[in-house]
């Protein structure tokens, strides 16, 4: 057992992990990536009236500095490779939220020739927020659910 592993074990056991998760849950930066109708609501969710900043959740433009990827709409065949790259560029620990029917199951475009129907096949999605598009309040609810999940270590990512 190397020293690093030992340190990890100690962290795993003790309350330090809780402190880590407290920090992570209160500082969720999301990737600014408007993709569809939900993208507009995402824009509003980050702006004044709904103000995600209250929860320490602010938009960043580079995937390197983000913690959560919001799939905010239709994922097309052409866009999927790009999107996977973006996901790979994000540093661990990272989470993924699927917003809207299109991101969850294809939604109204379930039978389109160009839409990827089940994003859960490609990304380990933590929170699904249904709606077409969901209201910004639902975004906030989803964010709080994610925070709760991180706090209770139920994201099964072994962070």
């Amino acid at each position: 057992m190397t020293t690093t592993e030992k340190i990890h074990q100690i962290i795993e056991m003790g309350p330090i992990k809780n402190i880590f998760n407290w920090g992570r849950k209160n500082s969720v930066y999301f990737l600014m990536q408007p993709m569809g109708c939900c993208g507009v609501e995402m824009f509003v969710f980050g702006a004044a009236p709904y103000d995600s900043d209250r929860f320490g959740c602010i938009p960043r433009n580079t995937p390197r500095q983000t913690d959560v990827m919001i799939i905010s709409g239709y994922l097309t065949r052409k866009y999927l490779p790009v999107f996977k790259n973006l996901w790979d560029e994000m540093p661990e620990p990272k989470w993924c939220i699927a917003i809207g029917e299109c991101a969850i199951s294809g939604g109204p475009f379930y039978d389109s020739y160009n839409i990827v129907q089940n994003t859960a096949d490609h990304f380990p999605i933590d929170v699904f927020i249904p709606g077409c598009p969901p209201r910004p309040e639902q975004f906030l609810e989803g964010l709080m659910n994610l925070q709760e999940k991180i706090k209770q270590r139920k994201d099964k990512r072994d962070y």
Binding site: M35, G36, G73, Y74, T76, K78, Y79, V82, P108, F109, D111, S112, Y113, N114, I115
Partner: peptide, 9 residues
Amino acid sequence: YIHKGIEKI
């Protein structure tokens, strides 16, 4: 990148 094929649907 977000071509959904609405006209076909």
